[in-house]
Simulated scan of single mutants.
Amino acid sequence: MTSALATRPRSSALDRDIAVRLAETEYGRVVALLDDLGPQDWARPTDCPGWDVRAMAAHMLGMAEMSASIRESLRQVKAAEKRGGVFIDALTELQVAERTDMSPAGITARYAEVAPRAVKGRRRMPWFVRKQKMGQAQQINGRDETWTLGFLGDVIMTRDPWMHRVDISRAVGAPLVLTADHDGVLVDDVVREWAQRHGRPFTLHLTGPAGGTWGEGGPVLEFDAVEFCRALSGRGSAPLDTEVPF
């Protein structure tokens, strides 16, 4: 990675219309998954330590509500900063804690209500706001880096519910809905960022509906597409020792 790439705030590489479409589809798939959960499913442990399905869904709802309202986003950021410590940990803990009294049905209904407004809020973010830097540095691969609000809104706010949809599906044993026109596009963006981050030759074969082939030369790597993304997110050993944020 060059010095310029190391210091420049990370921005979204996705076409804006594609980013909005991915967000809308992902929110819809989360709603469908939550709606299909049985009463016993909400207490099942997930791959995120300390979180059962209910806690994970509460966090996901909190993130959707951030996207749906600038006022709510600022409120959550301020409250998380007051908690101190690592910002993202403080934020997710806040989101779970504030929804402790919500029933599973209430979380599902609220998510379905908020999702269209979250898409609308992300679509309406103007270009000059999207270019602004986030106030908090993010530590990725052992280094602090800055992100633009556009990267947060167009990329991370969709990768996050996508990965947690994977987590919940695994926790409850539910089929994971995957299609090339949605999950394949999301995975392609992840692969391209992973390649840029490590900057080394590779040949990557990903299997499954979201898979494909990337690169030429270097080590030949083959994974299931979902398992590849899980590894990059810290849920396994990251290929070429390079993580990607979700």
Rank of each mutant, 00 (worst) to 15 (best):
E193H: 11
T2K: 15
D47N: 15
V172F: 13
M60G: 09
E65Q: 12
T108S: 12
M157G: 03
F151S: 05
A57E: 02
A19W: 00
A57T: 01
A195W: 02
R170C: 03
D35I: 00
A171W: 09
G208A: 10
R21N: 07
T7K: 15
L232D: 00
V185S: 06
R200A: 08
R192W: 09
R200L: 08
S11N: 11
K133I: 07
G84D: 15
H182R: 13
A43E: 15
R29G: 05
R200H: 06
T100C: 11
L34K: 02
D35F: 00
S12H: 09
S3E: 08
L232Y: 00
D160G: 04
M1V: 13
P49V: 00
G106Q: 11
E26Y: 02
K131S: 05
R143E: 06
D36K: 09
E65F: 12
Q76H: 13
R159A: 02
E243W: 02
L34E: 08
M66H: 03
A231G: 03
M56E: 03
W162R: 01
A118P: 08
R21L: 03
E227P: 07
T7I: 00
V244G: 02
S233A: 11
C229P: 00
R8G: 06
E193M: 10
R170V: 01
P209H: 09
K82S: 10
S11I: 03
G153K: 10
F128V: 10
A32H: 02
R83D: 11
G236W: 07
P209D: 04
W42V: 05
E26A: 04
F202Y: 09
L37M: 05
V20Y: 03
F223L: 02
T242Q: 05
R122D: 07
A105D: 09
A80C: 10
A79E: 10
